[in-house]
Every structure is written in C-alpha cells, then in structure tokens.
Nucleic acid binder design. Structure first.
Lengths: 138, 138
DNA sequence: GCTTGACTTAGACAATGTCCATTGTAGGAT
DNA sequence: ATCCTACAATGGACATTGTCTAAGTCAAGC
C-alpha cells in the first residue's frame, strides 16, 4: 500500500526495490503469509530477491510495528499486515485457515493483580481454535 | 509422578525404561521444558535414550491428554505437565520465563456469534506477554 | 522361557530461520 | 550529473527443531 510505503519512507526507511516488493506483497488481501510464501510472491516480481532479504525485511517491519508476527501453528511464523487494528485470531485445526476476530471485552482486565506475579504486562494474544465450516462439512 | 505412571499403565501404555524416565522428568517442578531439555535431563538418568524416543513419547503424552504443548515463543514447543487444571500463560519478553495463570472470565464468551464465521470452536489459548520482576529491575 | 508386536535406536532428512563476508546501491553531498 | 559512503542485498553455510525409516530390542502375555 502506498500508505505503508509512505509511512516507512517518512520514518527514514531507505527504499529499495526489494523492500518495496515485500511491502507490496504484504499489502494484498492475502494476509497471514509465511516468510517463504512472501518470498515466493516477491520472486514473481523481482526474481533475484534472496530469502535472507525477505527475512530481514519482515523482521524490520515487525520491529517498526507495521506488521505483526503470528504463531498460530507450530510451523512457520505468519505475517499479518493488519497491525493497526488490534485483533485476535481464529484458526482452523484441520486446514489451518486463519481469520482475524474482534472479541468484546479486555482479556487484560481478566487477570487479577495477584495473578500477575509482578510482571509488567504489555500485550495479550488470544488464539481461538476450532474447525471451519468448510472442514466441518467435508 | 507415580500418579502419572499409574494412569498411563491403566490405559494400557506399555511401560519401558525410556517412557518412565520421560514421565519422571516432566514431573518435577521444572515445568515448561522444551523437547531437547527433556531429552537432556532424560539422558542424565538413561544415557542411551534417543532423541526420537523423547519426541515420540512427548507426542503420545500430548495425545493422551496428560501433557500440554505450549508454543509461547517462536522457538521450540514446550511441554506443560499441568494438563488437568485449565490455565493460560504469562511470558517474559526478555528472559522467556513462563508462569501459569488463571484469569477470571471466559474468553470464549467474549467472541460473539457474528465473529465466529461458522467455526466450531473447541479451545482458546491466551498468552500474556510482559516483563518479569527480575528483568525489570535488571 | 518363548513369541510377538510394540518400542527404541541412530542417523538421514526436512523445514524454518540466522549469520556472515562480499558485493551492490540509495540518497545526500559536491 | 557524479561521487561517496553507510546501509542494504546476496547466497550459501550453518543452526535449530522436528520427522521418518529400517533394523534391532524388549515388555508382557502365554
């Protein structure tokens, strides 16, 4: 999204063909890609882009807070460009499909001080697991 | 714990030296070990135990519902022998320390039907992230 | 004490991710 | 427009975690 590229440039991010391609790949509605999926799509547009660069760029985007890392399964991390609207995830245990969901209520409020053990809590991640309609009927 | 061994035997689990050692390692208060940590401790008691056996045994314990798999970081899965009391996890972002916590409220109730997209939800996993007292003062 | 099928082993393999030395280049300075 | 230089990209080795397989071993019932 030019939005994203704009923001990054404004933050002093040095713009290169590789970084642009990675950002563009993430911008589709093909959300929740793994690093290798991002790489595969990036290669379609810029054949000589290397795996290391994709990993580096994704890592930077995460550090910058423009993209979220999601570890819904035990396999590869996935990258979620929807970092500016807090949300959680709903994962199909069969096919691995992932949906963003917006629960009501604040899980943080559900953790009493006595259960915080002196931690300074900054973030809560909620993953709902189940079976999606497709896999249920199949 | 002989509790655990007892239950497993009652379920027709064939008892071997290897399986006994793995179960014993998990039984300490050294909870939340990775598979390789379990292996390291198992080797101390049974030097010839192989990595594959540890992985197999852990997998079986998970299937039997005696142990939970926890993926708090993006690194190795961890194994939580506290499978019989539902709980969630609090993870230190610096040192990786993990504590079991028991929030009030039910996260499932916080997900409206309209946000379930036809999924049959069976499980919710909540991970709180923050900085533990040790790392805060350091 | 046999027998047998389940269990264990070692090591190859696979998937994902990281590191590093080298080469290339974006963007400011001239 | 060209040059400089710090930052970025490359590719390939390496690391970590986990899975698989073929062959040997053993627990438990008879």
């Amino acid at each position: 999204m030019s939005d994203l590229l704009e923001r990054l440039r404004g933050r002093g991010w040095r713009m290169t063909a590789q970084r642009r391609v990675v950002a563009e790949v993430l911008d589709g509605d093909h959300v929740h890609l793994t690093a290798d999926e991002v790489h595969a799509r990036a290669v379609e547009r810029l054949p000589e882009i290397s795996r290391a660069t994709v990993y580096n760029t994704l890592g930077e985007l995460v550090t910058l807070g423009e993209v979220l890392e999601v570890s819904t399964d035990r396999r590869a991390k996935r990258y979620d460009p929807n970092a500016h609207r807090p949300h959680h995830h709903l994962v199909c245990a069969r096919c691995g499909a992932i949906r963003d969901v917006h629960p009501t209520g604040d899980p943080l409020a559900d953790l009493p001080t006595t259960e915080r053990f002196g931690f300074t809590i900054s973030d809560v991640e909620v993953t709902y697991r189940g079976v999606c309609p497709n896999c249920t009927s199949a």
